[in-house]
Simulated scan of single mutants.
Amino acid sequence: MEPVIDQAFAAALYAHDDTGLDTGASLLAAAPTADDEAHARGEEFVRRAWARGWQPADVIRIVRRELDESGAALAAALIATETARYPHLPPRWADQLAALPAPAPRNRPDRFSYASALLGLYRLLLGLPSIEPVGPAPGTAADRLYQPPAHGESRMLTRIRALLAKAEGTGFPEEAEALTTKAQELMARHSIDEALIAARTHSDETPGACRVGVDAPYETAKAILLDAVATANRCQAVWNSELGFTTVVGFEPDLEAVELLFTSLLVQGTSAMTKAEAGQRAGGRKRTKAFRQSFLMAYAQRLGGRLASDTARVTAAADAGGAADDIPGATEHAAPGSLLPVLAARDVAVTDTAERMFPKTTTTRVRGATDLDGWTHGTAAADRARLGRGGPGIDR
């Protein structure tokens, strides 16, 4: 059956029109005995993606963006089969695999449609560019030697997660404000605790990285928000606008904090934007894309300064005399004046790692907001989230 597969792939995968896909799909649909080999080759395309720096969540995100949800289900089936052959997987992969969409059943709704969708997916996988790896690929020597930091889900992170979940679910802005502020304080304290433990134990832990999806619409505003969250939590963020994600570089506890807070603030901001639009419509004014873009830009910009302010306040309190009494959960104590050199050393390590991963970046000037009502409502929503003002410059 290999000649049939070779003919189908030659027709479909290296052309750029639907005619080639139709020809290849017709050949595969007429050869049921070729199904296993066709899927085995798809698994090989997935392995090639790992070698080029991609991870399961990255593949699913780009397939959804370039194809559709059915294509993501096809990719999920290939990923699940391919990764099942490894005795263990790199850090973060288990969570990504658990979040995969339900795998697509074979040959549904019919053989031709299925084969056409499968070949379209293979065409996309073959064209994926190399990207900066954020960890070893499974099955490689680097993966076998790699020992991830043994952090796990600490009680502090569990509490932070619970606070943010309450902030997202409450219908009272004042309560959401208090909960989100407390969560950021705990994140800052958690980062300090981890830094002090690492310094005291002479840990050889180095910064890592993760990728966070930044999806349309309004991806520029979302990237600015993520950059603000990363900076406030002692990380650096580099946005790849073409592929729809930001790479965040930092120490593992800080990366966890960034992912948690960004996701929560995006939920809170979207909810506030929806309510603001409803109020405007009730007043007889039609809201537009410009309103939503301006809202999220103001929300992201306004949050930056207050995020940084909260972190600076907690850091100053800790450096002045140990764990702050008004921040429950603080455990590590530093001698007065001894904390800042520890944090500075970690900042340098993060900067060095980011510069090695991304030796060439550009700063993008973003388009200003054009809807005054959107900007006003977005600023107010950021104030209610208790997280506030910062510049919009981002690395790209």
Rank of each mutant, 00 (worst) to 15 (best):
M1N: 09
L13G: 00
H16R: 00
G20F: 02
L21I: 08
D22M: 02
T23Y: 05
A34W: 02
D36Q: 11
H39I: 03
R41A: 00
E43G: 04
R47Q: 08
A51D: 14
W54R: 00
Q55T: 14
R61L: 05
V63D: 01
V63P: 00
V63Q: 00
R65H: 08
E69S: 02
A72T: 00
A73S: 00
A80V: 02
A80L: 01
T81G: 06
R85N: 11
P87W: 03
D95H: 13
Q96G: 10
L97K: 03
A98P: 05
A98W: 02
A99L: 08
L100D: 03
A104W: 00
N107L: 03
N107E: 12
R111W: 03
A117C: 00
L119V: 00
G120C: 01
L124Q: 01
S130M: 12
E132L: 13
E132M: 14
G135F: 05
P136F: 01
L145A: 15
L145R: 05
E153W: 07
R155V: 12
T158W: 06
I160P: 10
E168Q: 11
G171A: 04
P173E: 08
E177K: 12
A178E: 09
A178N: 07
L179W: 02
T181H: 10
S191N: 10
E194P: 05
A195N: 07
A195Q: 08
I197C: 05
T201Q: 10
T206N: 09
T206Q: 14
R211G: 10
A216L: 12
K222M: 04
A223H: 07
L226D: 10
N233I: 05
Q236R: 10
Q236T: 12
N240M: 09
E242N: 11
L243H: 09
F245V: 04
E252Q: 09
E252K: 03
E252W: 13
E259P: 07
F262M: 00
T263S: 15
Q268G: 03
A272I: 02
A278T: 03
Q280M: 09
K286A: 03
R287S: 15
T288N: 14
A290W: 05
S294R: 04
M297Y: 14
A317N: 12
A318W: 14
E332L: 06
G337F: 09
G337D: 08
L340W: 05
L343C: 08
A344I: 04
A345D: 08
A349N: 07
A349F: 14
V350H: 12
T351Q: 15
D352A: 15
M357I: 14
P359Y: 08
T363L: 06
R367P: 08
A369L: 12
G374L: 13
R384G: 12
G388N: 13
G388V: 07
G390C: 04
I394C: 03
